[in-house]
Design a protein around this nucleic acid. Structure first.
Length: 208
DNA sequence: TACATTTGACCTCT
DNA sequence: AGAGGTCAAATGTA
């Protein structure tokens, strides 16, 4: 099967859009810093600006997604329309053994290939994620959201992530990544456009 | 109509 | 047994 590698012009466009997205992310972070001073005083950044940066980020994300898709659409032939089909099983139909269920937790615990935790001002990171679950976490004020790559079905991308609000600063998201994006290995740059290092002095964030 | 999100149930691990 | 992670039907939205 053909690998999902975008043609050169698409890759160039991807890079440019990604760069623009980074800038927007930086801008948003700056606004966030103004909005949430350490002592909790009044915000300095108007909400309109934040929404605007959010929009920019969103647009960039869409553009990235569209570019990626345009670079790899050929291989969707077998999907006959690319419809994500559901399997009517759970109810009372045939058991139809699902082998994929066997080792999920184990991968998380033991054999996870790439896990990293990031703090971000936004959930957006340049990839298109699809939410597949949400869970109240014991001892935590905020629920945890579960996402997987939208292209899991199309490209077999195994990337997943968990997003949870940071209790110390609810405007910041703690994002834990599992697996790697195989849906777009476009170039040498890693798909981590912008990482906010909020832990300036303390030593959290990375379990060293 | 097609796709994403919501949400309760189920499964596995500790 | 409880917590966390995932599935998938139901529902919402463009």
């Amino acid at each position: 099967m053909a690998m999902a590698s975008a043609p050169a012009p698409v890759c160039a466009a991807l890079k440019l859009v990604a760069r623009g997205r980074e800038s927007a992310a930086v801008l948003q972070t700056l606004l966030l810093g103004q909005q949430a001073p350490a002592d909790g005083s009044a915000s300095a950044a108007p909400h309109g600006l934040q929404e605007l940066t959010n929009q920019i980020l969103r647009c960039c994300d869409r553009a990235l997604a569209a570019l990626r898709h345009s670079g790899t659409e050929e291989e969707d032939a077998d999907a006959a329309g690319g419809i994500r089909k559901r399997k009517p099983e759970r109810g009372n139909g045939a058991p139809a053994a699902s082998p994929a269920r066997a080792s999920k937790r184990m991968r998380m615990r033991g054999g996870e290939m790439g896990t990293r935790v990031e703090k971000r001002a936004t959930m957006e990171d340049g990839f298109i994620w699809r939410k597949y679950g949400q869970k109240e976490i014991h001892g935590s004020k905020y629920p945890r959201f579960y996402f997987r790559c939208t292209y899991k079905e199309d490209h077999g991308c195994t990337a997943r992530r968990q997003v949870q609000r940071w209790e110390a600063d609810p405007s910041v998201f703690l994002i834990t990544y599992f697996g790697d994006h195989t849906c777009c290995r476009d170039d040498d740059e890693p798909p981590a456009p912008f990482v906010i290092n909020f832990s300036s002095s303390s030593s959290d964030g990375k379990p060293s």
